[in-house]
Amino acid sequence: MTTRRSVAIIGAGLAGTTAGLGFLDAGFDVTIYSDRDRDSLRNKVPPTGVGVLFGKSQDWDAEIIEDLYEVGKTTGMSVRLYGGAGEDRAPVLEYDPDYGYISAAVDLRLRADDRLGRFLDRGGRFEVTTVDLDNLDEIAGAADLTLVATGKGGLSTLFPVDESRTKYREPQRRLLQVTLTGVDHGPDVFAYRSQAGGGHSLYNLDSENGELFVGPFLHKDEGATWSFIVFAKPSGAWAARIDDVHDAVGARRTIAGIFAEFFPEDAPVIEQLEVIESDPVSWLKGAVTPTVRRAVATTSGGHAVAAIGDTAI
């Protein structure tokens, strides 16, 4: 009798559920551990990113799970760069390339939940429990392979920072993310920027203050929506505005204000967008120091574990 090799995965976000489904389909005995149940993972935490799949990443993803989503697709990006400050501020560059493929921006909570559902339907095990360093050692001792996918927090500190590949010691941007609704993805939206209109994402750059990404998005409940990420330079005018945001309404107000002052040609469209009332955690703010960690660590009992996703980079 042959015993199937076992895999333990700590974390049920996109990285953990993708790995779990892949290993399960490859014939492994897989258990995913999470400190939240399935409903909480889908409905009570914010999406930790926009999760756009570009080009080859979609091909690789298709090896794990087929494309389940028709909304949130784009074929290019409309870019505008402004330089200078005050009266000297002026447009410097604009271009509107097609990717040559279709990208997709889908709520990470939906992607992960769909993967978890497939994982459970195919016989995978899902255990809701808090994993700390002590029981990680027990789990790793019982499994043939243990992967840690708990994100930038959680168990990431178990993995030493790779100093040779970590160039920064502080965040390079203040970040604000929010999903808004009320405008469709049709070709008439932002048509003055691109023939593709709402079929292209927007990327506005300001040399003094940072960058602002806007893209068609598939929200887990609302469907066709728009996702925003503000990348604010710590020394610029946008950073303090982000620090003053405390809810989705404040996030929308801050972004609308930035567009009105810095990108007024886009402001009339942005002003039409509203918060998603059914999803009070549709926003996120913070700052991240770009960090690369060693891929493998050893538990207190001498068991090797590997980091994937944001736990590693």
Results as ranks from 00 to 15, higher is better:
Glu271Trp: 05
Ile255Leu: 15
Ser6Thr: 15
Lys56His: 14
Ala196Cys: 11
Val161Phe: 04
Leu81Asn: 06
Thr298Leu: 01
Thr299Pro: 01
Glu211Thr: 13
Gly20Arg: 00
Lys44Asp: 14
Lys167Arg: 14
Arg253Asn: 12
Glu208Cys: 13
Pro97Ser: 04
Asp188Arg: 13
Leu155Pro: 01
Glu63Ala: 10
Pro290Asn: 04
Glu127Tyr: 02
Tyr69Arg: 12
Tyr99Ile: 03
Asp243Met: 08
Asp162Glu: 11
Leu147His: 04
Leu273Glu: 09
Arg80Val: 05
Ser278Phe: 03
Gly84Asp: 07
Lys285Gly: 00
Pro264Ile: 08
Val148Cys: 01
Ala248Ser: 12
Thr2Ala: 14
Asp113Thr: 13
Thr179Leu: 04
Arg241Val: 11
Gly154Asn: 06
Ala85Gly: 09
Leu155Thr: 02
Gly83Met: 08
Gln177Lys: 05
Glu127Met: 06
Lys167Ala: 12
Tyr33Met: 02
Arg169Cys: 05
Ser300Met: 08
Asp29Pro: 01
Asp134Trp: 06
Glu163Tyr: 03
Ala239Gly: 08
Gly309Asp: 01
Glu94Ala: 15
Ser6Lys: 14
Gly151Leu: 06
Gly124Tyr: 05
Gly301Thr: 08
Glu94Ser: 15
Leu81Met: 12
Trp226Cys: 03
Arg118Met: 11
Val161Pro: 08
Phe263Trp: 13
Ala12Asp: 00
Phe263Arg: 09
Arg241Asn: 06
Leu120Ser: 00
